[in-house]
Amino acid sequence: MRMTIRDPYIAAHGRPAQFVDFFTHDPMKPMPRPFGISEIQDDLVSFIFAVVGKGTGEFAELKAGDVIDVMGPLGHPFNTKEPANYVLVAGGLGVPPLIHAAQHIAGDENSESTAVFGYRKNHFADEYVDRYADRTYSIDESEGNVVTLLDRIEDELKDGDLPPVILSCGPLPMMKAVASWAAKRDIPCQLSLEQRMGCGYGTCVLCTTDTVNGRLKVCADGPVFTREQLGWE
């Protein structure tokens, strides 16, 4: 599902890996649903999500013109300040924030981006990321996974003009594999974590992850952490 909302504030301030809390209209489901921003055009902000339950199902049924309650942007974005070849490694529902990363980096003339996307089957996001990334590689389960791709393009990354920096989002085992791949090659790696969240703004401490600095909040201290912060090797 792709959903676009009009919100000038979020459009102006949203950065890659930041998310927006969506509130259902069903009081039986009071918790906000966090969705990562996937693209921003003028004052329109897009999200790509899968319908996993009745909470997200409600959003899938929205019609153009409907009004919903949102709060955001929330969390800390990827750091893309340094000139680099940002390697956007994503799988599954980790893909949308990295489309936004590609879009953001496309606006920075000192950096470039290389999308490395893993899908279960359908390469659904290639068409979106192609518009922004300098190079797009994708793979589905029939051929391998994102590490297969990284191995394939390793030389290309090494030989490029800009130093590679990995930005990654996806299932935990994938991100751990990516971090390990990066560690062995001494490539900087930022990881945007997913966790079942509460408030989304840092008050409830329901979404935490273990880091070398202790158990930190994914929503407010993250969702982006460096490989070093997470202590993943």
Binding site: R196, G198, C204, D210
Partner: peptide, 13 residues
Amino acid sequence: EGNPGVRTAEGPA
């Protein structure tokens, strides 16, 4: 440090 892993679930209301 509190409890590790998933700490929250939603119930009806």
